[in-house]
Amino acid sequence: MAFVAVENISKTYNDQGSRIGVPVLRDVSAEIGEGEFVCLMGPSGSGKSTLLTILGAMNHPSQGRLVIDGIDVYALSDERRADFRAQYLGFVFQQHHLMPYLNAIENVMLPLATLPLAAIEKRRRALEVLEKVGLAKKWSRMPNQLSGGEQGRLAIARALANEPPLVLADEPTGTLDTKTGDEIMKVLLDLSARGQTIFMVTHNPANAALAHRVLYLRDGELEPTPGVVEARSEYCRSGRG
């Protein structure tokens, strides 16, 4: 059984004041196995962000089911779904969305704020994750004291703090230069190599090529694409991974 099962999901947005709905996703079905690194590509307006927010348990689909680890996510109440997000999901946003008034370690501890853990345990976990992304020595820096790449790594560290089974990334390299983008991709690939399940939306074919599998969305429908992209193995062979 797949770790993530997207079952016939459709989403229609209703324009305010209009009875006519705008369909964004049409009968989308997909599966993601545990430890898989899956990329979602597609042109603007194809429904990528909508599918990502549905996978992120934040956007109720009009039809269909999302099952993660056997849990029918949208059958949960709003508050239980918040708990689900805290327990199962890690988000990496396109513009990182770090809290500018918290330092690096506090940003990483943010997803732990609502969890019933001792302060020392929260700090230990945060330091461990910062170590993973190579920012342990900069734990006390404020976000504006970090470079773009470091901010991206910090955003990934925050997504990992609650040890989520699934990491969702929304074009994490979209606004970055090539070097910084590569830095972020390296961290994600390292995580993938350690068995982390990752679902990433991207416009960048080179980044998509590094995933285990690419899903292609056009006009709200998934198109069949080749499963494994050669570039990944090439990337790994070249020693960058």
């Binding site: 934040m58 508050e79 999901l89 890690g90 969305h97 943010l110 997803p111 925050r158």
Partner: peptide, 16 residues
């Protein structure tokens, strides 16, 4: 709005 959205996305309940 952005900050609250991020907090909700990472698992903050309404009550939080």
């Amino acid at each position: 709005t952005k900050e609250i959205g991020v907090l909700r996305a990472i698992g903050f309940r309404r009550t939080h």
